[in-house]
């Protein structure tokens, strides 16, 4: 049986259970820690590092670090803000993210976190990589230009849909989202109801011909910026 413990985040004491990941404990307590690859319905991945906090002075990914009694955690300080911004900016320049006409604008988590952190322009030069659009599926489009390799679709397809449609292939800067080993999307058993589509934070995976149906001003983050329901840490 899990034991109730107390941890401190930015000076606020919160109760949680032994072994609960810090990020989940914070969100459950109404404290927002910025994050991207984490999704509440999926096991943690720890790949994007946006949720990095200082645990007793050490930098740790809060989504994969279990809470322990008495932990003193810092999430809201200038150094962490700058590190998070740097990570988000790298994600922007590493892909081709054209928010100005992207159909996910206003409901994209990458854009929402960038706004939240106050990013105006990336400090790094854009790489403008050559990436493909896989529109071979009748109902779904995979736009690699927007993929941030968070692995959400991989986990969702594996653990929720039981289909194993996606995987992360190759390594380092060459890492890319693979589809069912070497196939195109149209050759997989992906369906429009799959959880894998629902969890994509950036619109790399989209249901075709549903774009722009929600007017500007009524989109997910237009009125409720990401994290605004929580007490608010940067």
């Amino acid at each position: 049986m899990k034991e109730e413990i107390t941890i401190t985040i930015d000076g606020v004491e919160i109760k949680t259970k032994t072994g609960e990941f810090i990020l989940r404990a914070a969100l459950n307590a109404g404290i927002y820690i910025p994050h991207l690859c984490f999704h509440p319905d999926l096991p943690p991945h720890g790949s994007c590092r946006v949720c990095t906090v200082k645990v007793n002075g050490r930098h740790m990914a809060s989504c994969t670090t279990p809470a322990e009694d008495g932990m003193v955690i810092t999430s809201d300080d200038a150094e962490l803000l700058d590190l998070r911004k740097a990570v988000i900016e790298m994600l922007f320049v590493e892909g081709n993210h054209f928010c100005m006409f992207c159909e996910m604008s206003g409901k994209c988590e990458l854009q929402a976190v960038a706004y939240r952190l106050g990013i105006l322009v990336p400090r790094y030069p854009n790489l403008f990589p050559q990436r493909e659009v896989d529109a071979s599926h009748p109902d779904v489009m995979l736009d690699h230009n927007r993929c941030i390799l968070c692995g959400r679709c991989v986990r969702a397809s594996d653990e929720k849909d039981g289909k194993h449609v996606f995987e992360l292939m190759e390594r380092g800067a060459k890492t890319r989202l693979g589809v069912d080993a070497e196939n195109n999307l149209g050759e997989t058993n992906l369906s429009i109801d799959d959880k894998a589509l629902d969890v994509c934070p950036v619109g790399a995976l989209l249901i075709k011909d549903t774009a722009y149906r929600i007017p500007i001003g009524e989109r997910q983050y237009d009125k409720t910026p990401v994290g605004s329901q929580h007490k608010g840490n940067k």
């Binding site: 100005m100 006409f101 159909e103 529109a135 489009m141």
Partner: peptide
Amino acid sequence: GRPFWELPVAVQR
């Protein structure tokens, strides 16, 4: 190479 439904929003740019 872009999907057609982007045209009204993209091309106006």
